[in-house]
């Protein structure tokens, strides 16, 4: 991989990411408010269904806050995966008319979601005030967790976007993959409710470590284990580099097929 070439196109990367952010909120009345509204509404629904109706445990935090701390990193992951996975097909005009390292498209789309995430992160402080939960030094782990989160999302999107050039089926399958993956991750529930005999298989899901890490970092307590973070990182790196290799292999034919 020619990292130098990728680096020389860094301006294009920033401008594409900036374009995605800009376009997302053009002609919306609420604009960036949606970024805060979406995870809050989602966590509200989770709190009602899983916390109030199903009475699932929330490891000692208010369920709303507990769900929000899971929804925030999950939204970052799901949105980046969605946008990056479809980035080649939606940018086919560029792919067939201009040369640039194609890897830039999924990476830039995924980074554009980071802006939303930061806004959401800031809004969580309001929830902290409402529930009077103190922040801890654990919060310093967030940048690392965000990077690991993006690493996994971008890695998977390399696979999805590269194959979607030949087979649009991947675009249609993507929402279902994201949805199934969400239920396989501790977004709406605590991973402590997963039965013991499934826990090894469960922890192979790289998002388990990431989301538990976020909860630990934001709420100050919870299931933080170096092992599950290690698994997340290992799986993330594997998916990322294998995805990049596959992407580079198929890349040559993109313009002819897309």
């Amino acid at each position: 991989m020619s990292l130098r070439e990728l680096w020389s196109y860094r301006d294009l990367f920033w401008i594409l990411a900036w374009r995605d952010v800009k376009l997302r909120y053009k002609q919306t009345a609420l604009g960036v408010t949606w970024v805060i509204l979406q995870p809050i509404l989602t966590s509200g629904i989770f709190a009602v269904i899983f916390g109030f109706l199903a009475e699932l445990p929330s490891d000692g935090s208010p369920y709303m806050l507990f769900a929000f701390a899971g929804t925030l990193p999950w939204t970052l992951f799901a949105q980046s995966l969605q946008r990056a996975g479809t980035s080649l097909v939606s940018g086919r005009e560029l792919v067939s008319k201009v040369y640039f390292p194609r890897l830039i498209l999924p990476i830039a789309s995924s980074f554009s979601v980071l802006v939303d995430f930061l806004v959401g992160l800031a809004s969580i402080s309001v929830l902290f005030l409402i529930y009077q939960v103190p922040l801890t030094w654990n919060i310093l782990a967030i940048p690392g967790l965000v990077l690991a989160n993006l690493l996994i999302a971008v890695g998977v999107s390399f696979w999805v976007s590269a194959f979607s050039v030949h087979y649009r089926d991947f675009i249609y399958a993507l929402p279902f993959l994201v949805q199934a993956w969400m239920y396989a991750s501790p977004v709406a529930y605590a991973s402590s409710i997963v039965p013991e005999e499934w826990s090894v298989l469960y922890s192979l899901n790289p998002m388990v470590g990431i989301i538990e890490g976020f909860r630990w970092s934001l709420l100050g307590h919870g299931l933080f284990s170096w092992l599950s973070i290690g698994i997340s990182l290992a799986v993330g790196l594997l998916v990322f580099f294998s995805g990049a290799l596959v992407f580079r292999r198929i890349e040559r034919g993109f313009a002819d097929v897309i």
Binding site: L12, I15, R19, K22, L23, Q27, F100
Partner: peptide, 17 residues
């Protein structure tokens, strides 16, 4: 959807500037 100014930067970067 973007303004003229924004498009100059976008299109310029895409063309390799």
């Amino acid at each position: 959807e973007l303004t003229g100014r924004e498009n100059i930067y976008l299109s310029g970067a895409i063309l390799g500037m």
